[in-house]
Design a protein around this nucleic acid. Structure first.
Lengths: 341, 341
DNA sequence: CTGAAAGCGCTTACAG
DNA sequence: CTGAAAGCGCTTACAG
């Protein structure tokens, strides 16, 4: 396969002309006659631009790197995948590629650190927050990233004070599941979160306590369950709670996967949904309408989050300005797993 | 941030020494004293290798490009995602990155063509077959790809005669859903495939006809339904079949999504699963155990397929030899959507 | 409208 | 053990 120098040589013109035309067929700096000759030669000799060489000389790669600081295989979380969908669709529209670099390290903050010590070779970064990371480490990572000077946008993490691009998923009070349960007459509400220290769970617990308090309902530690975002763990933790006599008529879960874990535990104890217990999940995952009964769930604007992250990053790439914060409101999708008390 | 030349200058040594050490800390070609000095300077000056420059000069990118010839957003098919998981995990292990380049074109074969006319900048390719492509176009694409000389592995397509790396998902007779239905006493079996011309559907229809014939059961066109791999279309096509009086006591679907479409149609006609109709899906998707009733399904080795595709590609990259064909057998997972007649 | 030439940040024979 | 130098395939001021 020919390279640009060979094409130029064959036509007895300069590389400059070839480059100019190939990068902008409308350019006025090359005559129509020359353009036609180049076009023909490119076809005939099967010329394909070498994007690596292009990147090196132009100092632009047209590639966005996605940091997903997980040890386990990627592409397994429907939440993350949906966000990647939005991201990809928007980036492709503007001719950008997406690259996933190998991450190494025991936990997510170490991975990000190693990543930022590693090779550069992309125009910008999309940083995914992970559930398995404390807020302090999250902020530390963001600081490190800012120091590198690489443009980036952060998704799936709480709002941070730094002037960085962020897409934040937010639940307005009228879509708050706990609030909804209370308005439906429930007073004993189980909250199923992930882990004790991840920011998503922490924020949810705080919010839960606040909503209870403002409704004059007593808070009890034992009504907060840690399901680790896993089906099995949730199932066994719920069974424990039932066996310990923890009272509840409603359960809100921070993921749909955990909600089906709750389903299973309830079924094993012959508790009916929603007659005995109401259940709400989070994310409106693909399978949420196929469960028995179909699951009421808090739908987050996940695809849109990916899209907006791409847009804000692209904006920074063009203008060199960062700091755009975008809030996307979640919405309750009513199915048959909830009832008025 | 410093580059390699600056590091060398600061230490008053050559770039050669720096490069040698950085690419192989165990090298005998640099003294321990010099190694220590380089290491220190790299830390102090925050040196990060420039992977684009590295790729250009070494002619290796350590990047694998994935061709997913879809117009719609990627990362939305649980089947493809699971394959990507296997692919990613294996590639990361060996330090390879994954890149997704923007694809353009109306249909998948045009996308592949455009892709192969576009920029190069990766060591190898993973080519995903798409359901929405005829066998002829598939072969044409493979031929084009072979001509470029880029190492590649193909997944998710029927076995091709060319000496290329391929991972093929196969169903042995003992896991054949139609065979299973017949052995369970069913005689009126509906087959739900995707489209009329995609190779996956064609092969399945052929296989269906053969199994029926060898069991002495008459084949009827009206018992083959085209669901386009979509929930809604499947649902309405099944309802049509029921209204037309097409007889059936069992349904095999080429995807779990279509199977839940069947579920919905049956429920709307007050047909019970499995009492009135047995249903089998394909893929053992995440939600298959959460449906009502839990879905019996043909599990394909999707993750493994991704893994093996990566392995065979890596092998070709090392040895320059291609042509490895790997068959992975599918397996029936029994849940509660099927019964003996 | 066109071209000669420097440069992007590395690697890698080659020579010592 | 170490270094000078050519080269990877492009882009891009600069000069005409």
């Amino acid at each position: 396969m020919a390279n640009m120098a060979e094409i130029a040589k064959i036509l007895n013109i300069s590389k400059t002309a070839v480059s100019l035309y190939l990068n902008d067929p409308e350019t006025k700096r090359v005559s129509d006659a020359t353009k036609a000759r180049i076009s023909k030669a490119v076809q005939e000799h099967n010329y394909r631009p070498h994007m690596i060489a292009k990147s090196l000389s132009s100092a632009r790669t047209k590639t966005i790197s996605v940091i997903l600081p997980y040890n386990s295989p990627l592409f397994r979380s429907s939440f993350v995948n949906e966000m990647l969908s939005g991201l990809q669709f928007e980036l492709f529209k503007h001719g950008y590629s997406i690259i996933f670099l190998p991450t190494k390290g025991e936990d997510s903050s170490i991975m990000v650190k190693n990543y930022l010590k590693g090779a550069r070779g992309y125009d910008g970064i999309i940083l995914f927050g992970t559930r398995y990371c404390t807020r302090e480490l999250l902020e530390e990572n963001v600081e490190l990233l800012m120091q590198t000077g690489t443009p980036f946008s952060a998704v799936n993490m709480p709002e941070l004070p730094q002037p960085i691009n962020q897409v934040i998923l937010r639940t307005p009070m009228e879509s708050n599941p706990i609030q909804f349960f209370i308005q439906s007459g429930h007073k004993e509400i189980l909250l199923v979160v992930g882990r004790e220290h991840d920011p998503e769970s922490l924020l949810t617990i705080q919010d839960y306590q606040e909503v209870l308090r403002s409704s004059g309902i007593a808070y009890s530690d034992e009504q907060v369950i840690f399901g680790d975002y896993e089906y099995d763990i949730t199932r066994s933790e719920i069974k424990k709670a039932i066996n310990h006599g923890v009272p509840f008529t409603a359960v809100y879960c921070l993921s749909d996967t955990m909600a089906v874990g709750v389903y299973e535990a309830l079924k094993e104890h012959n508790l009916r949904i929603p007659e005995d217990v109401s259940v709400i999940g989070t994310n409106d995952s693909f399978f949420a309408c196929y469960t028995d009964p179909p699951l009421t769930t808090l739908r987050k604007q996940v695809y849109k989050a990916g899209e907006e992250a791409a847009k804000s990053l692209l904006h920074t790439l063009q203008t060199n300005k960062a700091g755009r914060k975008i809030w996307l409101d979640s919405e309750l999708i009513f199915r048959n797993s909830t009832r008025l008390l």
